[in-house]
Design a binder for these strands. Structure first.
Lengths: 156, 156
DNA sequence: AGTGTTTATTTAGCCGGCTAACTAACACCG
DNA sequence: CGGTGTTAGTTAGCCGGCTAAATAAACACT
């Protein structure tokens, strides 16, 4: 019976394990982010801005692989918190540029430390080889799932 | 400079890649689940019920690693859709049992197929060894992150 | 120039998820 | 028996995410 698939239950899927692992990860990071009064997801906006301040709203949405309305609301809240500010785009009156405030810039190190703590927890008990392998495999999977994301294999 | 950590940017973290990979996965599965009018996350409730019909609300929350209010709202919606029904627990008047309706049961195969499609997409281009390795590594990471989740190594 | 189309963003409203605060039933124990 | 504390769920309200529909500026073409 049930000869169609390899799996008795969805729970056997690697896909399922990926989802559950990620949920656990989000919970873990979320708990740490609360220390700096950030909600899970908001740090991703800041990561992009720390790298390239002054992005346009649409570009942010693209980079985060998120729909525009999500950015609208997140930016409103981040602006209310005083972490970013929106400035009109001189080249296009439809657009705006998102800039970090000093307060936003000051969060970089704390959030960096939080992500390092998460990294440590995630990789605990894995050998150096296993860590590299996991990273490479996740990048491959991401390339499979995310159109437009291309994984360039590390020079091995 | 910046001798403290190995990473220049959070984007180098395996942790970051895990989060991004999972987001892509959620989007992919979500797109497919729309075919059966399910929102991402709802299928997890059904997975538990397909395995053990008649669970109590609290038990569902525990298994999904979700807070009770989340279950309250999800069940209300699933009930409205006619996929599950709540029946009073004869042994405890505070509690209730969640039972699948016929309609809920009928979703098992379609959702199963959807997850298999996702699985195929996730694992595309990975060798059999790589697939096993990915699965094992994800389980280890999950065990690192999720208190109470223990990964029993497969007999190798 | 004027009309039509495409592009950037917002609004409204829904869903999954959370915390905090509340209610109601059970359980225990003096 | 009755009071106290614990346990199961709900409500309210917030945040990240989505879709559909509206707005408004830029562009494109006659």
């Amino acid at each position: 019976m049930e000869r169609k698939g390899r799996h008795q239950s969805i729970k056997e899927n690697t896909s399922y394990t990926l989802a559950k692992t990620c949920k656990a990860h989000r919970v873990a990071v979320g708990g740490l982010l609360a220390q700096v009064s950030l909600h899970p997801g908001q740090e991703m906006v800041l990561v992009e801005l720390w790298q390239d301040d002054g992005l346009r709203g649409g570009e942010l949405a693209t980079r985060l692989a998120v729909e525009p309305p999500t950015i609208t609301k997140m930016l409103r809240r981040l602006e209310t918190c005083g972490l970013v500010e929106r400035r009109p785009d001189p080249e296009d009156a439809r657009s705006f540029r998102v800039h970090l405030t000093n307060e936003g810039r000051e969060l970089e190190k704390p959030v960096h430390r939080i992500w390092e703590a998460a990294e440590t927890k995630v990789l605990a008990g894995l050998s150096s080889d296993e860590r590299d392998t996991l990273r490479e495999l996740l990048l491959k999977v991401r390339a499979n799932l995310e159109p437009g994301f291309e994984h360039v294999q590390k020079t091995v």
